[in-house]
């Protein structure tokens, strides 16, 4: 992704970090170009937060390399990074304006500039009238927006955000989307972990999908979606009829759950050229009774499910005797 003279904002190669109690990451790689937004996607426990902590230097990796802005990630480089941790923690007694300015000054901004930045950002996000309010007096969503502003106040070149949308209402999410877009337009790079596929799909240029402690996909969102086969979830009591219909259109079939009564739930995968109506026609030809038919589009969520389920586990799960 390195284009011309502009170095990647972030480059992670073969990062590994294992914990004594199990878990961690075994092989994570990614690149973030300046002026881009990258979604960091993975199931719970896949290692997203561990990766972010390693990038920030909060954890020392067992192996691998982290580079920022074309050089090894050192203290100076990390001062150009804004970070939003997964678990929000602010001094409840501090005033919103003070807490933003404090974080900006920690990253090197002078006092006057820090307070100016705090005022500007609070104005920008519609919290100007609450600048004197203590954090403990703010609603959860507003406190979270204040914490996001803490990450932005010193004018970073790279934002690392752990679940930035959790706890935000749709209006607040829209504001954050717009903030991110502004940040990208200004040449900044964002890496954010999320479980919200729709947010990742609408906002991100690229996605990194993590499964079993490994990077299983890195690329453009459209590329990920294209890699996801489309199909449908079908609930029917006629397994034989369904199998014949699917075979007739060149698809494949996977049971999704144990039988409920006489019916079973199947995940049908179709070739790219076969449409949903074509599958329905094939089912009708075989006189297959359909209790439910739910189309699966070729999108990021589909890609995520396929990649996450295909990945080997990071560690052997305990077997129950």
């Amino acid at each position: 992704m390195q284009t011309g003279a502009a170095p990647d904002a972030l480059r992670v190669d073969a990062l590994a970090k294992r914990f004594a109690g199990g878990g961690g990451v075994v092989d994570v790689s990614m690149r973030l170009a300046a002026g881009s937004i990258t979604g960091f996607i993975g199931v719970n426990g896949a290692g997203k937060s561990t990766t972010l902590r390693c990038i920030l230097g909060l954890l020392t990796p067992d192996a691998g390399k982290v580079e920022m802005f074309g050089a090894a990630a050192d203290r100076d480089a990390r001062r150009r990074v804004g970070f939003l941790p997964e678990e929000r923690g602010l001094f409840p007694r501090e005033r919103a304006r003070d807490v933003i300015a404090f974080h900006a000054r920690l990253k090197g901004l002078e006092k006057a500039a820090a307070f100016h930045a705090a005022d500007r950002l609070l104005e920008r996000i519609g919290l100007a009238e609450r600048r004197r309010a203590r954090v403990g007096e703010l609603s959860k969503g507003n406190a979270q927006r204040v914490q996001l502003l803490c990450a932005l106040a010193h004018g970073p070149d790279l934002l690392l955000l752990d679940e930035p949308f959790s706890g935000l209402d749709p209006i607040a999410q829209g504001e954050v989307h717009s903030l991110f877009s502004e940040f990208r337009a200004g040449g900044g790079a964002i890496l954010f972990s999320t479980h919200a596929m729709s947010a990742a799909e609408s906002l991100c240029d690229r996605v990194v999908i993590l499964a079993g402690g490994r990077t299983v996909f890195e690329g453009a969102v459209a590329e990920a979606a294209a890699a996801s086969p489309h199909g449908a979830v079908v609930v029917t009591p006629d397994d034989g009829g369904l199998a014949r219909a699917v075979a007739a259109v060149g698809g494949s079939l996977v049971p999704m759950a144990t039988r409920i009564g006489e019916a079973a739930r199947w995940r049908v995968t179709l070739p790219a050229e076969v449409t949903h109506p074509a599958l329905m026609r094939a089912l009708a030809d075989q006189s297959v009774p359909i209790f439910a038919f739910e189309p699966i589009k070729s999108d990021l969520e589909g890609a995520f499910w396929r990649l996450a389920s295909d990945a080997p586990p990071a560690r052997a799960e305990r077997k129950v005797a």
Binding site: L56, R75, P85
Partner: peptide, 16 residues
């Protein structure tokens, strides 16, 4: 307090 709510992580991302 800061260890429990992970605020220490924010501090440690900016300071030694």
């Amino acid at each position: 307090r800061e260890r429990a709510n992970r605020a220490l992580e924010t501090l440690l991302s900016a300071a030694r």
